[in-house]
Amino acid sequence: MRAMDRRGNDPRTPAVRLPSRNALLAMANALAVRTGWAGRDREVSWLLSARPSAVPAARRLATARLSAWGLHRQAEAAELLVGELVADALRRCGGRIRLALRVDDGLLRCEVTGLFAGPGARPGPAPHQSLLARLACCWGVSGQVAWFELPAGGGHAH
Protein backbone atom coordinates (compact mmCIF):
# COMPACT_ATOMS: atom_id res chain seq x y z
CA MET A 1 0.00 0.00 0.00
CA ARG A 2 1.29 3.48 -0.89
CA ALA A 3 1.95 6.11 1.75
CA MET A 4 -0.42 9.06 1.62
CA ASP A 5 -0.22 12.54 3.08
CA ARG A 6 -2.98 14.11 5.20
CA ARG A 7 -4.99 15.04 2.11
CA GLY A 8 -4.83 11.54 0.65
CA ASN A 9 -2.22 12.40 -2.01
CA ASP A 10 0.79 10.26 -2.83
CA PRO A 11 3.83 12.39 -1.79
CA ARG A 12 5.93 10.78 -4.54
CA THR A 13 3.64 12.18 -7.23
CA PRO A 14 4.92 15.57 -8.39
CA ALA A 15 2.53 18.44 -7.82
CA VAL A 16 1.07 20.08 -10.89
CA ARG A 17 1.95 23.75 -11.05
CA LEU A 18 -0.57 25.77 -12.97
CA PRO A 19 0.66 28.80 -14.93
CA SER A 20 -0.10 32.24 -13.55
CA ARG A 21 -2.74 34.49 -15.09
CA ASN A 22 0.06 36.58 -16.57
CA ALA A 23 1.67 33.52 -18.18
CA LEU A 24 -1.70 32.46 -19.60
CA LEU A 25 -2.16 35.93 -21.13
CA ALA A 26 1.25 35.70 -22.76
CA MET A 27 0.48 32.21 -24.12
CA ALA A 28 -2.88 33.33 -25.51
CA ASN A 29 -1.24 36.32 -27.17
CA ALA A 30 1.47 34.09 -28.69
CA LEU A 31 -1.27 31.87 -30.13
CA ALA A 32 -3.05 34.91 -31.57
CA VAL A 33 0.21 36.06 -33.16
CA ARG A 34 0.96 32.62 -34.65
CA THR A 35 -2.52 32.31 -36.15
CA GLY A 36 -2.33 35.77 -37.73
CA TRP A 37 -5.23 37.13 -35.73
CA ALA A 38 -3.08 39.58 -33.75
CA GLY A 39 -1.96 41.53 -36.82
CA ARG A 40 -5.44 42.79 -37.64
CA ASP A 41 -6.06 45.18 -34.77
CA ARG A 42 -3.82 48.18 -34.18
CA GLU A 43 -4.93 48.61 -30.58
CA VAL A 44 -4.77 46.07 -27.78
CA SER A 45 -4.73 45.97 -23.99
CA TRP A 46 -4.21 43.37 -21.31
CA LEU A 47 -5.03 43.33 -17.61
CA LEU A 48 -2.07 41.85 -15.70
CA SER A 49 -2.07 40.54 -12.16
CA ALA A 50 0.07 42.59 -9.77
CA ARG A 51 2.67 39.84 -9.36
CA PRO A 52 6.35 39.64 -10.29
CA SER A 53 5.37 37.59 -13.36
CA ALA A 54 3.74 40.74 -14.79
CA VAL A 55 7.10 42.18 -15.92
CA PRO A 56 8.25 39.29 -18.15
CA ALA A 57 4.68 38.69 -19.31
CA ALA A 58 4.29 42.35 -20.33
CA ARG A 59 7.60 42.24 -22.21
CA ARG A 60 6.56 39.09 -24.08
CA LEU A 61 3.12 40.52 -24.86
CA ALA A 62 4.56 43.75 -26.24
CA THR A 63 7.31 42.10 -28.28
CA ALA A 64 4.99 39.52 -29.83
CA ARG A 65 2.35 42.10 -30.71
CA LEU A 66 4.85 44.52 -32.23
CA SER A 67 6.26 41.68 -34.33
CA ALA A 68 2.73 40.84 -35.50
CA TRP A 69 2.29 44.48 -36.46
CA GLY A 70 5.58 44.49 -38.38
CA LEU A 71 7.23 46.90 -35.91
CA HIS A 72 10.40 44.85 -35.41
CA ARG A 73 12.62 47.94 -35.15
CA GLN A 74 10.63 49.29 -32.20
CA ALA A 75 10.38 45.99 -30.34
CA GLU A 76 13.65 46.18 -28.41
CA ALA A 77 13.12 49.70 -27.05
CA ALA A 78 9.43 49.04 -26.36
CA GLU A 79 10.24 45.80 -24.52
CA LEU A 80 12.72 47.58 -22.27
CA LEU A 81 10.43 50.53 -21.55
CA VAL A 82 7.34 48.36 -21.00
CA GLY A 83 9.28 46.28 -18.48
CA GLU A 84 10.40 49.38 -16.59
CA LEU A 85 6.92 50.92 -16.47
CA VAL A 86 5.26 47.67 -15.39
CA ALA A 87 7.91 47.13 -12.70
CA ASP A 88 7.24 50.64 -11.43
CA ALA A 89 3.48 50.03 -11.43
CA LEU A 90 4.10 46.88 -9.37
CA ARG A 91 5.99 48.93 -6.78
CA ARG A 92 3.31 51.61 -6.60
CA CYS A 93 -0.03 49.84 -6.85
CA GLY A 94 -1.78 47.09 -5.03
CA GLY A 95 -4.17 46.18 -7.81
CA ARG A 96 -3.97 45.04 -11.38
CA ILE A 97 -1.94 46.64 -14.13
CA ARG A 98 -3.28 47.49 -17.57
CA LEU A 99 -0.86 47.45 -20.49
CA ALA A 100 -2.17 49.07 -23.66
CA LEU A 101 -0.51 49.38 -27.06
CA ARG A 102 -1.81 51.42 -29.98
CA VAL A 103 -0.44 52.33 -33.38
CA ASP A 104 -1.97 55.47 -34.82
CA ASP A 105 -0.79 58.26 -37.09
CA GLY A 106 2.79 56.99 -37.36
CA LEU A 107 3.29 56.50 -33.61
CA LEU A 108 3.35 53.53 -31.30
CA ARG A 109 1.86 54.52 -27.94
CA CYS A 110 2.21 52.40 -24.84
CA GLU A 111 0.28 53.10 -21.64
CA VAL A 112 0.77 51.34 -18.33
CA THR A 113 -1.94 51.98 -15.78
CA GLY A 114 -1.59 50.92 -12.16
CA LEU A 115 -5.07 50.21 -10.90
CA PHE A 116 -4.51 51.23 -7.31
CA ALA A 117 -6.10 49.22 -4.56
CA GLY A 118 -5.80 50.09 -0.93
CA PRO A 119 -4.39 52.84 1.26
CA GLY A 120 -0.73 51.78 0.74
CA ALA A 121 -0.89 52.35 -3.01
CA ARG A 122 0.39 55.66 -4.26
CA PRO A 123 0.95 57.33 -7.61
CA GLY A 124 4.44 58.57 -8.28
CA PRO A 125 6.76 59.90 -10.94
CA ALA A 126 7.83 57.75 -13.86
CA PRO A 127 10.89 55.59 -13.22
CA HIS A 128 14.12 55.88 -15.14
CA GLN A 129 13.28 59.21 -16.69
CA SER A 130 16.63 59.31 -18.47
CA LEU A 131 15.86 55.95 -20.11
CA LEU A 132 12.48 57.21 -21.25
CA ALA A 133 14.01 60.45 -22.55
CA ARG A 134 16.72 58.55 -24.42
CA LEU A 135 14.55 55.87 -26.08
CA ALA A 136 11.11 57.43 -26.51
CA CYS A 137 10.21 60.38 -28.68
CA CYS A 138 7.89 61.56 -25.89
CA TRP A 139 6.60 60.27 -22.58
CA GLY A 140 4.71 61.36 -19.50
CA VAL A 141 2.82 60.48 -16.36
CA SER A 142 -0.75 61.50 -15.66
CA GLY A 143 -2.28 60.23 -12.44
CA GLN A 144 -2.16 56.44 -12.57
CA VAL A 145 -0.96 56.27 -16.20
CA ALA A 146 2.63 56.29 -17.41
CA TRP A 147 3.05 56.37 -21.18
CA PHE A 148 5.60 56.66 -23.97
CA GLU A 149 5.56 56.92 -27.73
CA LEU A 150 7.93 55.61 -30.39
CA PRO A 151 7.88 56.43 -34.10
CA ALA A 152 6.11 53.56 -35.86
CA GLY A 153 7.61 54.32 -39.26
CA GLY A 154 11.09 52.99 -38.43
CA GLY A 155 14.27 54.75 -37.41
CA HIS A 156 15.22 56.03 -33.97
CA ALA A 157 13.29 58.23 -31.60
CA HIS A 158 15.53 61.25 -32.03
Rank of each mutant, 00 (worst) to 15 (best):
M4E: 10
M4H: 05
R7M: 01
G8K: 00
D10C: 00
R17E: 14
R17G: 04
P19L: 08
S20P: 09
S20V: 14
L24C: 06
L25Y: 06
A28L: 15
L31A: 00
A32C: 09
R34E: 14
W37Y: 04
D41Q: 13
R42S: 14
S45Y: 07
W46D: 05
W46I: 13
R51S: 08
P52R: 02
A54I: 10
A58H: 04
A58I: 13
L66C: 08
L66G: 00
S67L: 05
A68G: 15
W69G: 10
E79M: 04
L80Y: 05
V82T: 13
G83F: 11
L85Y: 08
D88C: 12
D88G: 04
A89D: 13
A89P: 00
R92M: 07
G95M: 14
R96T: 09
I97M: 03
R98N: 01
R98S: 10
A100W: 05
L101Y: 00
D104H: 02
D104P: 00
D105E: 15
L107M: 14
L107F: 06
L107I: 08
C110V: 15
V112K: 08
T113G: 03
F116G: 06
P119A: 14
A121T: 10
R122E: 10
G124V: 06
P127D: 06
R134N: 14
A136S: 07
G140V: 13
Q144K: 11
F148Y: 15
L150V: 12
G154F: 10
G154N: 11
A157N: 02
H158F: 15
